[in-house]
Design a protein around this nucleic acid. Structure first.
Length: 303
DNA sequence: CACGAGACCTGTTCGC
DNA sequence: TGCGAACAGGTCTCGT
């Protein structure tokens, strides 16, 4: 679920101590706001705090669902993490990276994960899978309904993130880098963009939005992309990711409240609704087993 | 190498 | 209203 902008938002909140605010956003003109539901009851007992975790020391740890902890073993986890201080919190692709005194704690949220900061005096939320207690009675909980998420405690973060492709928002990620990534492979472009070893951070939403803005059909063979198309795609990938971050991510259903990017969707989730450019209904197809939304007129298949 | 199917999980929404 | 099917922001592994 969470893609690069959602992970970046969570990282910034944990690092800077700003709660994700649930506030109205200004929908772009002539675009209808998408529904955002009320918070789920279990979240109401788990209020977000505005406290930064930087400088806090870990005093307790609990693994509530054993498969959540990828490394090390649950028995080795607490003795090793106990007493380590949170020096920094960063992001690599869709991974959260906690820089501790001696080790790195990496978290991947997969489809339904979230990081909740509460007081240790609060009851656990229904889907808390791993919790850390820190100074000042703080609790950091990895909450993950579907149990797909994973946590690693390692001395070298590269052992977990080493397989990832470049960061699309990096200054040194250029349009010719993207062109090379596409043309040196012969794959459908959408699954290629979703492949984290090729480029890190894109998921289903931001891929559909990028391809739509770039007027590229999601099944286009990557090696047939022109230089001009690659340039447009490079610009639009960076645009939607930056816009997503600016909007604190996208909030759909009950996940990631506070985001506003759902109000800017042009393709994702708009099946049957008119394309903002040409009025043709947005179509949903399956590409690489993923739900894919596009405009059949603006994004024609390349023959 | 590229791609599809199935697995991993729980919860909500859809369609009859 | 009820109930099973379909679907969900991700990734991994296996077989062709």
């Amino acid at each position: 679920m969470p893609e690069l902008p959602e992970v970046e938002t969570i990282v910034r909140n944990l690092r800077n101590g700003h709660p994700r605010e649930v506030r109205p956003v200004n929908p772009p003109p002539e675009q209808s706001a998408r529904k955002v539901r009320e918070p789920r009851p279990d979240y109401e007992t788990a209020p977000l705090t505005s406290t930064s975790l930087l400088g806090k020391t870990i005093t307790e740890a609990a693994v509530l669902w054993h498969r959540t902890l990828a490394e090390p073993t649950p028995e080795a986890f607490f003795p090793r993490i106990k007493g380590q201080r949170v020096e920094d919190i960063t992001r690599r692709g869709k991974y959260l990276v906690f820089h501790l005194s001696l080790d790195y704690l990496l978290v991947h949220l997969r489809m339904s994960g979230d990081m909740l900061v509460t007081s240790v005096t609060e009851p656990l939320a229904p889907h808390d899978r791993l919790t850390l207690s820190l100074d000042d009675e703080l609790r950091l909980a990895f909450n993950d309904t579907r149990k797909f998420g994973r946590v690693w405690l390692v001395d070298n973060p590269e052992t977990v993130t080493g397989h990832l492709g470049p960061e699309p928002l990096d200054d040194n990620f250029t349009t010719s880098d993207l062109y090379a990534l596409l043309t040196t492979r012969k794959r459908q472009i959408k699954p290629l963009l979703l492949d984290q070893t090729v480029i890190a951070g894109l998921g289903n939403i931001y891929t559909d939005e990028s391809l739509h803005l770039s007027k590229i059909h999601p099944r286009t063979q990557s090696n047939t992309i022109t230089q001009a198309q690659a340039e447009a795609l490079w610009r639009n990938i960076r645009y939607v990711l930056a816009k997503g971050i600016e909007q604190n991510g996208a909030s759909i259903d009950w996940v990631y409240r506070g985001g506003g990017f759902q109000n800017y969707f042009q393709a994702y989730g708009r099946t049957g609704e008119p394309c903002y450019t040409c009025g043709t209904p947005i179509t949903r197809i399956l590409v690489g087993q993923r739900s894919t939304h596009f405009c059949p007129r603006c994004q024609p298949p390349t023959m």
